[in-house]
Amino acid sequence: MHNDTAYDSWLESIQRNEACGLATVLHGEDAQSFEPARVFLNEDGASVNTIEDPALTEGIRSRIAEKLGNKNAKGETVKIALKEGGVASVFIDIHHPPVHVMIFGAGHDAVPVAKYSVSLGFDTTVVDAREAFNCEDNFPGTERIIVQPDHYRKHVTITKNTFVIVMNHHMEKDSKSLAFALRSGAPYVGVLGPRSRREKMMAQLHEEGVSFSVAELSRMHNPIGLDIGAESSEEIAISILSEIIALSKGHRGGFLHDKHSIHKYPSQNGIPVRN
């Protein structure tokens, strides 16, 4: 069988949970060769191509790079003009690494959050030192990390795909979880509880000499969740996970009613406009 190096790189990159793109030149009916002509590019700029035309390769690579910079980017068939005239039809496939949800706090209200997160297909981690709560029975299908807040740094790994939910129901633990998460690469740090409680925590952290940059704070969401009037812990879980789904896809939430397009969202450079 053919040697499809770009496709192999695509499969390997997906396995490593990287954001990556694969462009395939679509063969027309009159194609001379069936060998796949592709360009692969990952988030770190590593690239493999099996296209002979360097100008076309470059054109395709810049289109993939553009998409990788936008978390709302989707697969698309594009036309790219050829130097010698005519156009090539190219399908650009985009892989977004799966969302990882990390819940700090294994209380009773974390149970539905973990349950819905697992059923959405998100890799789900629960962090809490209390083994009696943080157990397989309460959180089936999740990874559980039994650790005290002072040892997060050593035992808890947050990546740029990790959506953090802070819900310890304990000021000091929440405060430590929050500080840890805001210092990490997490794109989202949701904090359960009213705004006044969060402000108190931030003031305390400030007094302890811990302060955050604007960029670090921009990932914090509190009160947590979409505004759907959630009251029960099941409803709150839906509200939180709706917010995570929306943000992971560069959407803002809200009603679809009367919208002309369901899947497209006019985000600029992948960042949804915030209030």
Binding site: L120, G121, A129, G141, E143, I145, I146, Q148, K154, H155
Partner: peptide, 16 residues
């Protein structure tokens, strides 16, 4: 108190 990681158990959950 540091038990480190407990790995995911197979649960038969159909992941989307």
């Amino acid at each position: 108190l540091l038990r480190g990681r407990i790995t995911i158990k197979e649960t038969g959950v159909i992941l989307l």
